[in-house]
Write a protein that binds this DNA or RNA. Structure first.
Length: 469
RNA sequence: GGCGCCAUAGCCAAGUGGUAAGGCACGGCUCUGCAAAAGCCUUAUCCCCAGUUCAAAUCUGGGUGGCGCCUCCA
């Protein structure tokens, strides 16, 4: 088995080779915490969760770090508007982010460092750049000297002569070159600030990731991920800083996910066309949302819509129905066959193989999901046979579990819950009524239970129930 | 102006040189007291034009349409 990852730096799929055998270091740019996250913010969170899950399944020990940007212009601005201090605001939205992350069934990164907890690391990083001539101070701000770093522009493929500086934001006249970027910003009156050799201030936007990655993962990391909009300038700048200071690659594999659009327009807070995770999770479960986000390849743009969510929900339901079919068959079978069904064994193995092939081809989740659906069809067919081998049913469940450990798109079936005694009695009454061919009574009971959110299904192996999705 | 992405059935979406996976929706059928679930069947020549090739959705060139980045953004 060999894993290939598309590397933005080289524009090619490359065989993945970690720096240290069996270990993977992974850094994903995290959110600026000044508001609830929207589904576009959640896209990289889910994608890199899947990447991490799959690397883990391959046996790697994954060191995953994703920061919280808890000091920045937007936070300060929003805090001033709200009449609370920046720290209160950011800590509130860190908690909200963690709640949303958990609601999407994403394990919180083992390390979610705060920028403000690493101020000394950041200051030392900048000082190191100053000492090597890659940075200069002017009027209390410190800038990175891009002309001193030859590879600047390589990651994003930008032609520095052709970049249109000053189009959106006025160029700071203290810069030696327009493309130089801020490492340290002098504090304005009333802003949160830290002491530094250049006076009171706070870090520029890009420096945090370089410093935090270094502090947690070392000077070169295996995988650096985030949304494609961070490719330039953010990652270009991170790369320049780290490589200027350390004289070695910052990241071996740069992964960028495509944008999430709403009505074919990028979803972003500045455009105001956002769907918050907090609101979406009220209507759809985590599995459906993950299914929607993983239904196209991570590098492709994803157009988010109501239809997409409904289709994703229907897909997850199909899978969970299949699981219910298997478990019902397993619970009701009297077969005591010891061996697995040979044909099914081969089918299961080939589906498992397909799943892994696709995941190892740059995390092709749409095709990995297809493998899940192929197992659904096969397992459903198998469940309709007169005789089933319990071991084979178990094997199906195991493969579903293995695939789902990575993707997280299968809702847990709820058929094993204990029913209220009253409901239990009604169920039994209906079974008796059916035996007596009292169809009106049976239908009335089913109607009654449906009003309580319980759906009954009659199968050749007996009646089963599930909760309304 | 520069850089880059996208265009496959009603919808979502793989495939990237050998005559189009999968899902959703639709229709038909089977099973079933009914219902549900499930199974089976049916549904496209891949934005346009030209070229390379025995062979192209897949490569090349040129268009058309949509989107993004160029120091707020995941």
């Amino acid at each position: 088995m060999s894993l290939y990852i598309y590397n933005t730096l080289t524009r090619e799929k490359e065989l993945f080779k970690p720096i240290r055998s069996g270990e993977v270091s992974m850094y994903v740019c995290g959110p600026t915490v000044y508001d609830y996250i929207h589904i576009g913010n959640a896209l990289p969170v889910v994608i890199f969760d899947v990447v991490r899950n799959y690397l883990t399944q391959l046996g790697y020990n994954v060191h995953y770090v994703s920061n919280f940007t808890d000091v920045d212009d937007k936070i300060i601005k929003r805090a001033n508007e709200s009449g609370i201090n920046a720290q209160e605001l950011s800590s509130k939205y860190i908690q909200e982010f963690l709640q949303d992350e958990t609601s999407l069934h994403v394990d919180p990164a083992p390390v979610h460092p705060l920028v403000t907890d690493f101020m000394q690391d950041i200051i030392q990083f900048i000082q190191g750049l100053m000492d090597k001539g890659f940075a200069y101070e002017n009027g209390g701000d410190v800038f990175f000297r891009t002309t001193a770093f030859k590879a600047y522009g390589k990651l994003s493929g930008q032609n520095l002569e052709e970049l249109q500086y000053g189009i959106r934001v006025e160029v700071d006249k203290r810069k030696e070159n327009p493309q130089d970027f801020v490492l340290w910003k002098q504090a304005k009156e009333g802003e949160v600030a830290w002491d530094s050799p250049w006076g009171s201030g706070r870090p520029g936007w890009h420096i945090e990731c370089s410093a935090l990655a270094k502090a947690h993962l070392g000077e070169t990391i295996d995988i650096h991920g985030a949304g494609a909009d961070l490719q330039f300038p953010h990652h270009e700048c991170e790369k320049a800083q780290s490589e200027a200071l350390h004289d070695k690659p910052f990241a071996n594999y740069w992964m960028h996910n495509g944008y999430l659009n709403l009505n074919n327009e990028k979803m972003s807070k500045s455009l105001g066309n956002v769907v918050n995770v907090r609101d979406l999770i009220k209507k759809y479960n985590a599995e459906s949302i993950r299914m929607a986000l993983l239904s196209s390849h991570y590098r492709s743009p994803l157009n988010f819509s109501h239809d997409l969510m409904e289709q994703a929900k229907a897909g997850t339901t199909r899978i969970s129905n299949c699981l219910a079919n298997i478990q019902h068959r397993l619970a009701t079978t009297n077969d005591v066959e010891k061996d697995a069904d040979e044909n099914m064994q081969q089918v299961i193995e080939s589906i498992a193989q397909k799943f892994h092939q696709k995941m190892q081809d740059d995390f092709n989740t749409p095709d990995a999901i297809t493998a899940c659906f192929e197992l659904v069809t096969e397992a459903n067919q198998y469940c309709e046979q007169d005789e089933v081998h319990p071991i084979t049913l178990q094997q199906c469940l195991q493969l579903f579990e293995q695939m789902n450990d990575v993707l997280g798109i299968v809702p847990k079936p709820e058929t094993n819950e204990i029913l209220d005694e009253e409901v239990e009695q009604l169920l039994q009454d209906r079974i008796d009524a059916r035996k007596a061919k009292q169809w009106d009574k049976a239908d009335a009971i089913r109607q009654q239970l449906e009003e309580q959110g319980i759906l009954l299904e009659d199968t050749p192996q007996g009646t089963r129930w599930k909760r309304k999705g």
